[in-house]
Amino acid sequence: MSQLYNKLLEDVRFQEGIKACINCGTCTAICAAAEFYNYDPRIIADTVQSRNEEKIENLLKSETIWYCGECMSCKTRCPRGNAPGLIIMALRALSQELGYFVESEKGRQQLFMKRVVGGWILTYGYCLYLEGIGTNMYAEQGPIWDWRQKNWGKVLDRLGANYKGEGNGILRKIPEEALDEIRKIFEVTGGTARFEKIEKFSKEKAEAMNLKFDDGIDNEYFQHIYSHNNNTHNIE
């Protein structure tokens, strides 16, 4: 029995995500990622159910597991009640746990997700925070966003927000004691440990890749993972 498979089984999402797959391709037919990446969720399911240690290890280090957009369209349709999207979530968790995520271009992007989304959650209590979404990094947000950027507070004010204010309302300042509770939850439940692992393995990888690594987003490694695309992801 594969050790990695046993690890995956510890994740309830994996237990929910795959019972037995019949390779019918219903998931792939409806998968948004399979349309635009060289990706096949059917094969993901088949690979994990092989319980082959080497194959699963390769999967955990592969680009493949990072293509899914977690829209969960596959769950609606599977005739066996499986959900490749949930399998993917379990694989991604394990890949980060073991540090395998840094072996792929797409996997390395987890540092971005950790520092940006993770950072916003712990700093502001929101998953997204407009001040970090500038048109310098998100040009497709367009001229209207440029205009908002020039007037963050005033536009929010116009639309009934309570930007950085006390009490209730849109984009209010979430009280420090509430944020402390969230941070404590992260510590108790393994969220902080996950973050630390992502940092540690990314730092090692940056050294191996000879890219400058530092805190924040203005460093070579971070900018590399954010924008680099080897353009082979949708080639057979």
Partner: peptide, 26 residues
């Protein structure tokens, strides 16, 4: 490949989506 969904076009023809599992492509 098992049919995943069928949709209707404006001219009432039907679009079907499957994976050709032997080709390994949607």
């Amino acid at each position: 490949g098992r049919l995943s969904e069928a949709c209707e076009n404006q001219d009432s023809s039907i679009i079907v989506k499957v994976e050709d599992t032997l080709a390994g492509k949607p």
